[in-house]
Design a protein around this nucleic acid. Structure first.
Lengths: 154, 154
DNA sequence: GTATGACCTCAAGTAACCTTGAGGTCAAGG
DNA sequence: CCTTGACCTCAAGGTTACTTGAGGTCATAC
């Protein structure tokens, strides 16, 4: 990981951030930022030296990408989640609000899945279980149907 | 994925399950089961034809592996989680209970992380936010410290 | 003037988690 | 007897999400 130590950062003019600054502020590795750009998840301008310059609003995007990673949402799905948020200009209040709600929905789904599993596992502990048949965990067809145990993308 | 259609399954004698049966009952692919075995997460005996035979209690292990995957716990960590559950004999009630509690703890952790993110994102929506500085999402050093946004294993 | 540091590109490597393919065994069914 | 299906092994391939490495450009610092 190339980190470009954040100590030497001086205020950049015009509110543009270098890749090193974005990295320092978001915690994402420089290489990761370049990778995200390749995927079209973020974008940058170039300065006269061909170095990436990021508008401030890009920090938000990167932050949300990091959040997504933490809860296991694949980057592909992010393309979709970001569909309505413009890359080339600071998104409007409304645009961000809509996107944020979408994010919240994803988080909720994720949480509910986990809560269901927790409840089931609690039941299992209570009943002295993980015994066949009774346990929902072991019978994916039942309680977990539509969310099955089967081969699935993370 | 080789599925070995479950239609032709007849009752196997002696309560041993073939790899196809385990696959059908757990939803894990046959290839995945062999892979888990390579990792030492599950184990099998062989019959006179050198085919894998699984004791019933192995189903529970596979079920828990599937659960782990769903919530994004890496298989490596499973080695640890399974440390006290014997592979070679049906685990005792107590052994399973202890392991189950461990699982519950992991689920709880995961859920709490998500809940925190949800709360923060709700705040962001409320404050018309994702504006710099105010938002915890964008300032990983603060609210999320110790759980930072930075490069981390899934 | 040369060294350093932050950046650039492009290609290849890594890790987790499997799947696919080639080539083979064996038992039961028609 | 021949086919089919379920299984076997071992090696290679695939996806996601990056990181690492080689080789190069500038501008500032000493």
């Amino acid at each position: 990981m190339t980190s470009y130590g954040s100590a030497s950062l001086r205020a950049t003019p015009d509110d543009w951030l270098s890749i090193g600054e974005v990295s320092a502020r978001t915690g994402a590795a420089v290489s990761a930022l370049r990778f995200y750009e390749e995927l079209g998840l973020i974008a940058s301008d170039r300065d006269h030296r061909n170095q990436r310059r990021y508008p401030r609003h890009m920090l938000r995007r990167v932050a949300l990408i990091s959040v997504a990673k933490r809860i296991g949402i694949p980057l592909q799905d992010l393309q979709e989640a970001f569909a309505d948020v413009p890359l080339d200009r600071p998104p409007s209040h409304q645009e961000w609000q809509r996107a944020s709600r979408d994010w919240k929905r994803r988080l909720e789904e994720r949480r509910q899945t986990i809560e269901r599993l927790e409840a089931e596992l609690t039941g299992c502990i209570g009943c002295g279980c993980l015994s066949m048949k009774a346990c929902a965990l072991l019978n994916p067809g039942d309680a977990l149907a539509g969310d099955g145990v089967g081969p699935r993308r993370l």
